[in-house]
Amino acid sequence: TGYYDVLGVKPDASDNELKKAYRKMALKFHPDKNPDGAEQFKQISQAYEVLSDEKKRQIYDQ
């Protein structure tokens, strides 16, 4: 599964769309709200870390 799929956004998503999707998913799977969501929360955080950084995103998109 790709990072875009993890966040539920298209590859041409804007920074604002990425942030909005990340916040929505992070709230849904945060371990405090969803004890079984810890692994998914890590994936969401990693996806956002890469896609929100312009240089990392360019490398990922290659």
Rank of each mutant, 00 (worst) to 15 (best):
G2P: 08
G2Y: 15
G2W: 15
G2I: 10
Y3I: 04
Y3K: 00
Y4M: 01
Y4S: 01
Y4P: 02
D5F: 08
D5Y: 09
D5K: 10
D5N: 09
D5C: 13
D5W: 07
D5V: 07
D5T: 08
V6H: 03
V6L: 15
V6C: 09
V6R: 05
V6Y: 03
V6M: 11
V6N: 00
L7M: 08
L7F: 02
L7I: 01
L7Y: 00
L7A: 00
G8R: 03
G8F: 04
G8E: 08
G8C: 09
G8H: 02
V9S: 02
V9K: 01
V9Y: 00
V9C: 09
K10G: 10
K10V: 04
K10M: 10
K10R: 13
K10E: 08
K10N: 10
K10C: 15
P11W: 11
P11Q: 10
P11K: 09
P11R: 11
P11F: 10
D12G: 12
D12A: 04
D12C: 15
D12M: 04
D12L: 05
D12T: 12
D12Q: 07
D12V: 05
A13N: 02
A13D: 02
A13E: 00
A13Y: 04
A13S: 04
S14V: 01
D15W: 13
D15Y: 15
D15M: 15
D15A: 15
D15E: 13
N16H: 14
N16A: 15
N16V: 12
E17A: 06
E17H: 04
L18P: 01
L18W: 01
L18Q: 01
L18C: 04
L18E: 00
K19H: 09
K19F: 12
K19W: 13
K19S: 09
K19E: 13
K20G: 06
K20Q: 14
K20Y: 08
A21P: 00
A21S: 01
A21W: 03
A21V: 03
A21L: 04
A21M: 02
Y22S: 02
Y22Q: 03
Y22C: 09
Y22N: 05
Y22D: 05
Y22T: 02
Y22R: 00
R23P: 07
R23M: 15
R23S: 10
K24M: 10
M25F: 05
M25N: 07
M25H: 06
M25Y: 04
M25Q: 10
A26S: 08
A26L: 15
A26V: 14
A26Y: 15
A26F: 14
A26N: 04
A26Q: 10
A26H: 15
A26I: 14
A26P: 01
L27T: 12
L27E: 15
L27R: 13
L27G: 11
L27K: 13
L27I: 14
K28S: 07
K28H: 06
K28T: 09
K28D: 09
K28Y: 11
K28I: 12
K28M: 12
K28Q: 12
F29I: 04
F29S: 04
F29E: 05
H30L: 07
H30W: 07
H30Y: 05
H30C: 13
H30N: 10
P31L: 07
P31I: 06
P31G: 07
P31T: 09
D32S: 12
D32C: 14
D32L: 10
D32Q: 08
K33S: 13
K33T: 15
K33Q: 11
K33H: 13
K33V: 14
K33I: 14
K33E: 07
N34S: 08
N34H: 09
N34C: 11
N34Y: 07
N34P: 02
P35A: 07
P35C: 09
P35F: 06
P35D: 04
P35Q: 06
P35N: 04
P35V: 06
D36S: 08
D36K: 14
D36A: 11
D36W: 09
G37M: 11
G37K: 06
G37Q: 08
G37N: 15
G37V: 06
G37D: 09
G37C: 14
A38Y: 11
A38K: 08
A38C: 10
E39Y: 09
E39V: 05
E39C: 10
E39L: 09
E39R: 06
Q40N: 05
Q40H: 12
Q40P: 02
Q40Y: 13
Q40C: 14
F41C: 07
F41E: 02
F41I: 04
F41W: 15
K42V: 08
K42S: 10
K42T: 08
K42M: 08
Q43T: 08
Q43S: 08
I44P: 01
I44C: 04
I44A: 05
I44H: 00
I44R: 00
I44N: 01
I44G: 02
S45M: 14
S45G: 06
S45K: 15
Q46V: 13
Q46R: 11
Q46M: 13
Q46H: 12
A47Q: 00
A47E: 02
A47D: 03
A47H: 00
Y48K: 02
Y48H: 03
Y48A: 02
Y48C: 05
Y48L: 04
E49G: 05
E49Y: 11
E49T: 07
E49S: 09
E49N: 08
E49K: 11
E49I: 10
V50Y: 09
V50R: 02
V50H: 07
V50Q: 03
V50S: 03
V50F: 09
V50I: 13
V50P: 01
V50E: 05
L51A: 02
L51N: 02
L51Y: 00
L51D: 01
L51T: 04
L51F: 02
L51C: 04
S52T: 08
S52C: 12
D53H: 06
D53P: 00
D53F: 04
D53V: 07
D53G: 06
D53N: 09
D53C: 10
D53K: 09
D53S: 07
E54S: 15
E54I: 13
E54T: 14
E54V: 14
K55L: 10
K55W: 08
K56I: 03
K56D: 04
K56H: 04
K56V: 05
K56T: 11
K56L: 13
K56F: 08
K56P: 03
R57P: 03
R57T: 03
R57A: 05
R57Y: 04
Q58A: 13
I59E: 14
I59P: 02
Y60P: 04
Y60W: 04
Y60L: 02
Y60A: 05
D61G: 05
D61Q: 05
D61V: 01
D61E: 05
D61S: 05
D61H: 05
Q62K: 10
Q62P: 06
Q62R: 12
Q62M: 12
Q62G: 08
